[in-house]
Amino acid sequence: MSDLLKHKLPTYTPPESVWEAVEQGLNEAPLKEALQHLPMHEPHPQVWLELTETLPTARPLRWWRYAAAATITGLLCFVGYVFLHSPSEDAKLTYSQEKAFPSALLAQNEAIDQQYEQLQAFCETKTPVCEKPEFKDLKHQLDELTIASRQLKEALGKYNTDASLSSQLSDIEHERAELLKKLSERI
């Protein structure tokens, strides 16, 4: 089969230029050989020295810049903290607004009323201390404030929505608590 193919398939002759190229390569063998041994040359050391003069130098480590930046930032934070938290003569006035919760206020009033009732019961038993002028004077103030408190509570009604009345009631209850405290100290 292979013999048959060899005789049947066409053959090709290379162009003459192929041999000419081979012949040229063979002819150039002495040249190629000599070219392999051409001398090498070393540059003058001055070349490197002049080169280094024109090249940029290595960038220095910049850790100190970061350290300086961190120090300055820390310093500024410290100064800011001291400035904001130091007592200033100019900062005497303060303003704040608090919203009283009616339920909390009601609970407080009930406690004062209970103490007031206990005090009334205590004095009804003719306890000598209740007859002292100073005690009687404080007790009189407390009675009046208690009346005012009850009137305000009636005016406020069930829902307790008037802010100014609530504020007055709060003040009265505060005074009542102070008087109760003074009276209890004398008992």
Binding site: Q24, N27, E28, A29, P30, E33, L38, P39
Partner: peptide
Amino acid sequence: SSVDWGNDAIDAAHLE
């Protein structure tokens, strides 16, 4: 046209 370089060795220093 191709160049005939002969068969003699060529001195490299001279070639340079």
